[in-house]
Design a protein around this nucleic acid. Sequence first.
DNA 1: CTGAAAGCGCTTACAG
DNA 2: CTGAAAGCGCTTACAG
Lengths: 339, 339
Amino acid sequence: MASNKPTLQDIADKAKVSRMTVSRVFSEKNNVSKETTEKIKKIAKKIGYHPNLIARSLSNRKSKTIGVFVPKTRHLFLDIYITQILSGISDVTQEFDYRLMLFPIDYKKEKSDLYLSIAMSHLVDGIILIKTKVNDKGLEELKKIKFPFVLVNHRDNTYNFVDTSNEKGAKLAIEYLYKLGHRKIAFVAGSMDETNAIDRLNSYKKTLKYFGLPYRKEWIIYGEFSKEKAYEASIELFNSKNLPTAIFCSDDYMAIGVMERIKNVGLSVPKDISIIGFDDIEISSYIKPSLTTVRQPMSMIGEKSAELLFDLINKKRTPPIHEFLDVELKIRRSTSKPK
Amino acid sequence: MASNKPTLQDIADKAKVSRMTVSRVFSEKNNVSKETTEKIKKIAKKIGYHPNLIARSLSNRKSKTIGVFVPKTRHLFLDIYITQILSGISDVTQEFDYRLMLFPIDYKKEKSDLYLSIAMSHLVDGIILIKTKVNDKGLEELKKIKFPFVLVNHRDNTYNFVDTSNEKGAKLAIEYLYKLGHRKIAFVAGSMDETNAIDRLNSYKKTLKYFGLPYRKEWIIYGEFSKEKAYEASIELFNSKNLPTAIFCSDDYMAIGVMERIKNVGLSVPKDISIIGFDDIEISSYIKPSLTTVRQPMSMIGEKSAELLFDLINKKRTPPIHEFLDVELKIRRSTSKPK
DNA sequence: CTGAAAGCGCTTACAG
DNA sequence: CTGAAAGCGCTTACAG
């Protein structure tokens, strides 16, 4: 650490002006004479002045920083899915000349006043929460103090959120299978404490009904958005005598787990069973067969959520705001007509 | 924003003590009587007090935050490789009860006083820079003011760094190919403005020499750590009459690009040509054939660099510190004996 | 366009 | 164990 960092006062002394004038130059108020501005900038450069942003924050009550809560999953807190959302957030944050503070969090374990204490800490001007769980008590506190925050991929009408059209996504998948000729369609659900998982499940049920397809409880299994869990749970599907001809999985990792299972029971994709995933993560186009999946526009989800947050911070929109982003079916080789 | 957030003074008034005493309670100095401590905590809870961390930072000159510079690559600033490093950094940061500020950066474009201005801003107590380029002018400034910082995966003896044993990694790969019986081994280099790429190339040359293998300039191609570039550049290898029997690629993405090329020229991996990559990214175990590669301990690299940074911040070690982490050869199906 | 005064909400460094 | 004083380095809100 430099022992004595120059301050506004140091420059003011040398330039023979008040430190207020120097402050104006660095906060770009453009109301200082050209002459003095140049003199001040020259001196600043010479003595190596850089503003103390903490001091600035304390007095103007703006941190110019947003906080992003990201779920820790699978030991690694960032899977590819979240990485892309984060990337979108980061792009917009830089456009707005803001900084980004990361809060990795285990939503299940964290005490409920974490959000509030960070909101009250003045460290950030707004918060984005990626994939919170249902019934998160902390959110109500944030709303109560009118702190700007946006939920990402968590649909709760009480709050601001940016979410994927999960309903449409699941519908697209089932519809596509139906049109291929499938009538026996099983479903692999995600973690039921996330609205993503709930919405996809409900849309699966609804779409089956719409097409007049049979709904069978034993054709729904629960994989908790995990490849391994999906692999384990999917054994049940193959113990029954009545095999589905297609399986729609709530995310790509689970689809990969199910494909492994299918291989292990001696069947083949898509010849015996068609598989559709959800997300379109990078691996999905590399595996064999490549995975048909519902693509979420991940980095756009990040961008939109950051844009919304800045609108809230700048009071350009009033809560609650709800945005749904569109999905797209990526057809690859894990789906075909039934035998 | 809450209109009037309670401050230390508010609690002090109600508790009939000085705000200094209240401050002591919240900074956990443990030198306040049990009785008063409890009274203060009770009042704080009742009126919803949460400390203003910005104010605390200004007066005690500690931000309790570290900054991490991450390269923006491939439009998405975070590829899987960086994600894992970041995850390791984040784990250690939480252990030390610090916060984490993210600075996505294009190292080639950024003006050179960015590091310095952030170091001087008091926003962070230390900095980790992931994959800087050779000849980055800004680093010298940081060193001059003795600001704690650590380079990740960039070997520059002037500064603190945590790097992979690239030399050993490349040696392991070549050695393995040699033992399989390969004598004609080509090399795909990364971006030559990164020491990672340089070190792997040098080790390739050195190891060839060690085994008495022929070094041919036309067997070295440059893929800039990009799948597409590697695909493009690798065409040259197949225009020559003298084909290699194995290709060692400086990263997995390039290995994937080269494998595509091999397929497109009608050859097959590993039957005609063996392929080895570097990194062990997630896809590498999913592609067909699965990729033999030199595994970097990515999240450990993150952990070690954060631990080193905290040691520097707490003056437990003195710069320059250089750490190399071990690599491991993951043998999969993209390598076999030559025909 | 410029400045004097007051303040942001904490902690440091004494002192007792 | 507790407190009075001063200060961290800025900006706000006047005033001229």
